[in-house]
Simulated scan of single mutants.
Amino acid sequence: MSPKYAFDGKFSVKSDIFSFGMLLLEIVSGKRNRGFCHPSHQHNLLGHAWLLWSANRATEVIDGCLYDLVEPQVQRCIHIGLLCVQKFANDRPAMSSIVAMLGNESASLPRPKQPGFFMERSSMDSSAISKHEELHSINAVSMTTLDGR
């Protein structure tokens, strides 16, 4: 979910681009953003991918089953994913540009800016996630039966 929609309830044509980028990062890493837990920090998958990419260690985000693929192609997918999840919608590429980026491996890519939702969780959230507890609410249902007089 794009930051603008999550915080302000405003949907834009680039909201789907954010979701596509997040999906791309989840596929490459083999992990879900929700429930992601790393022992050295409290960031979500998006924050983890950004930290590694910023430190020129993007290959550490790649799922082990993808090591047989050509590494530059997988790194390119991470780069494109990070371009799609930039905080401001105007910074995200159009879907036609994304298709061109994925299809043309020789074209250079712009440097992504910091993504939206790049934040650390509180220790309470991370302890619940590390215990693999589901974070949900309990819905109580009541039923009213109408009887005539």
Rank of each mutant, 00 (worst) to 15 (best):
A107D: 10
H38D: 08
S97C: 08
F7L: 14
V141K: 12
W53K: 02
L82W: 00
G64K: 07
M119E: 10
L69H: 02
A89P: 14
K14T: 03
R76P: 09
S127P: 02
L146K: 08
L102A: 05
L109D: 05
S97T: 13
S15H: 03
S127R: 09
C84Y: 00
M95W: 00
S15P: 14
L45M: 01
N44L: 10
R32C: 10
F118E: 14
N33M: 10
V74P: 07
W53Q: 00
S12Y: 01
E26Y: 06
A128D: 15
D63Q: 09
T145C: 15
S12E: 09
V85L: 00
F7I: 07
H48I: 02
P72S: 00
L46A: 06
S96A: 13
N56V: 02
M124N: 14
K31Q: 12
G116W: 08
M124T: 15
R32N: 14
M101Y: 13
P93Q: 04
Q75H: 10
L102F: 01
N139M: 13
M22P: 09
K131D: 10
S40V: 11
L24V: 08
P110K: 05
I80A: 01
K10H: 12
L51H: 01
G21R: 04
V70N: 12
D16Q: 02
N44R: 07
C77D: 06
R32T: 07
S122P: 04
L46T: 12
D91S: 15
K31H: 13
K10Y: 12
D16L: 08
L146M: 12
I80T: 01
K87G: 08
K10F: 02
G103Q: 14
S122L: 06
H79Y: 12
H41I: 08
L146G: 11
V141M: 10
P110C: 03
S19K: 07
R149N: 09
C84E: 07
N56I: 03
A89W: 05
Q73N: 09
I80G: 04
C84V: 00
I17P: 06
P39C: 04
V13G: 04
H132T: 11
H132M: 15
G30Q: 14
A128C: 14
A58K: 01
V61C: 03
R111P: 07
S19Q: 04
R76M: 06
S127V: 05
R34A: 15
G47I: 00
R92Y: 11
I78R: 06
Q75I: 09
K10G: 01
S126C: 10
F11H: 05
P115L: 02
C65T: 15
R149W: 01
G81E: 03
A58S: 15
G81D: 01
A94G: 05
R121N: 04
A140T: 07
H136W: 03
V141D: 07
I138H: 14
S122R: 02
C65V: 14
M95L: 11
V85A: 03
H136N: 09
A89D: 15
S54W: 01
G116Y: 03
K87M: 11
S96C: 09
R149V: 03
G81V: 08
F11W: 09
I27H: 04
